[in-house]
Design a protein around this nucleic acid. Structure first.
Lengths: 216, 216
DNA sequence: TATAACCTACCATTTGGTAGGTAGTTTTGT
DNA sequence: ACAAAACTACCTACCAAATGGTAGGTTATA
C-alpha cells in the first residue's frame, strides 16, 4: 500500500513515457526495468500485473489533469485565456518533447485491444476533458468572448478532436510547430466573432484566397 | 512476385483490420493465421517479415486512397461536395464498423516504435492527404464557396487533424455519431461564409449561447 | 520439372508472471 | 531497552506462452 519509495514513482513515470511513444503493447516490463535500473521481477512487487501498472498510471494521469485544470482556472479567469493556457501547455510539452502526446489519446486509439480496466479509465478522461471544455466554451460564449457555431457541447468535442489531431500531425510530420499552427487557428476561429471586423486578439491575417504552402 | 492468389489479399485485408484495432504491436502472425485460416509459416511465404507485410499493406492503402480521391473528383467537381464526400466516406466506414479508423492515422500515433520502412510510408500518406486537402480548399476559396480563416495549407492541416481527432473520439466514446457531429461542424464552419447570413447548405441551427449536453 | 502455395516441426527470443530468498527497516512484546 | 516478528524492497532463477522467423517437406499446377 505504501508508495513512498521513489522507485514506485519512477516506474510510473517511465511507463508513461514509454506508452506515450508506442501505446500499451509498445513497451514491456523489461523496457521499464532497463530504464529504471531495477530487475523485471521488482516491478511486479510494486505492480503485480501490467494492467495494474497501466491502470494506476492512467488514474494518476487523470488526477494530474484535473489538478491542472483547477490550477489553470486559478491562474486566469477568462475562458479564452484558459483555452490558451491549455493549448499552450501542450504546445510546450510537444516542443520540448517532454510529453509529446496525451497518454489517454494514445491509449484511446488502441481501445479495442486494451484491457477493459484500462479502457474504462481512458474513456473517463475523454468525458472529463469534454465536460471541462464544454463549461469553458459555454461560459466564454455567454460572456461574448467566444463565438460558437454550434452547441458548447459539440464545440467542445470539435475542440478536443482538433487538439488530439494536431498532436497526431505533429508526430506524423515530426514537426512540433504543426501543433501550434493547427491549435492557433482553432483559437483564432473561436475568438474572432465575425470574420469581417477585427477584434482584440487578431494578429493581422484574416482572409485568404491565395495559397502559400502547398508544395511539399 | 505473383499476387494472384486471394490468400495474399486476404492476409493484407486481415492484417489491415487488425492494425486498425490495435496498431503495429497489436497483432501477430498467429492472429492473422487464425482469421485467414492458414498456418503461421504460410504467411511468411507471402510476406517474409512483418515489416514486409505492414509496409505492403500501407503502400496499398495509400494507392487506394489516391484512387479514392481521383474517383471522388470525378463524381463531384465542387470542392465543398468533395469534402463532403470525403467525410461521408469515413462516416460510413465508422458507422458500419467496416474500417473504423484510418490505418495511417493509427500507425502515426505509434511512429516512435514503428520500423522505419513503415514510418516513411505513413508519413507519405499524411503529406499526400494534406496536399490534396490544400488543393481542394484553395480551389473552394478561390471560387468563393469556402470561407477560410487562414492559408489553404494551414486550413488543410486543421481539417485533417479534426477528422483524425473525430475518429479518435468516436472510438473513445464508442459512439460513431460523434464523428459526424464533429466533422459536420467542421464543414459547417467552412461553408458558412459569414455566421450571420444563412447560405445554401445551412441546416437551421446557427448561434448558441445556451448549453445542451453538459451533464453526465 | 520447376514453382507456387501450402504444410509440420522446429528455433531463439521476448513476453508477462511466479517462487523463493536476502538485506534492511519497523513494529511489537516483554 | 532489546530481541523477535513482520514487513518492504529488492534480488536470482525460474516458467509457460507467445513472438517473429527458418528449414525442409508435400502437393498441385503450369
Amino acid at each position: 500500500m505504501a508508495n513512498s519509495s521513489t522507485t514506485y514513482d519512477d516506474i510510473l513515470a517511465c511507463a508513461r513515457s514509454l506508452i506515450v511513444n508506442g501505446g500499451y503493447n509498445g513497451f514491456s516490463y523489461a523496457d521499464v526495468a532497463d530504464v529504471v535500473g531495477i530487475r523485471k521481477a521488482s516491478i511486479h512487487h510494486h505492480f503485480p500485473s501490467k494492467v495494474d501498472l497501466v491502470r494506476t498510471l492512467v488514474a494518476r494521469y487523470r488526477e494530474e489533469a484535473k489538478a491542472g485544470m483547477v490550477n489553470l482556472e486559478l491562474q486566469v479567469s477568462e475562458p479564452v485565456e484558459q483555452l490558451r493556457l491549455y493549448v499552450g501547455y501542450w504546445e510546450a510539452c510537444i516542443a520540448d518533447a517532454s510529453a509529446p502526446f496525451c497518454v489517454c489519446a494514445l491509449l484511446a486509439s488502441q481501445l479495442p485491444v486494451l484491457p477493459e480496466e484500462v479502457g474504462v479509465e481512458v474513456q473517463a478522461h475523454f468525458r472529463y476533458l469534454s465536460e471541462w471544455l464544454t463549461s469553458v466554451l459555454e461560459r466564454g460564449a455567454r460572456q461574448g468572448q467566444l463565438h460558437l457555431v454550434s452547441t458548447p457541447g459539440d464545440e467542445a468535442e470539435t475542440f478536443m478532436a482538433t487538439v488530439h489531431g494536431a498532436m497526431l500531425s505533429a508526430r506524423a510530420y515530426g514537426d512540433p510547430k504543426i501543433f501550434g499552427a493547427v491549435t492557433g487557428q482553432l483559437l483564432e476561429r473561436l475568438t474572432s466573432c465575425f470574420p469581417c471586423d477585427e477584434n482584440r486578439e487578431s494578429d493581422g491575417r484574416k482572409f485568404y484566397d491565395r495559397d502559400e504552402g502547398s508544395s511539399t
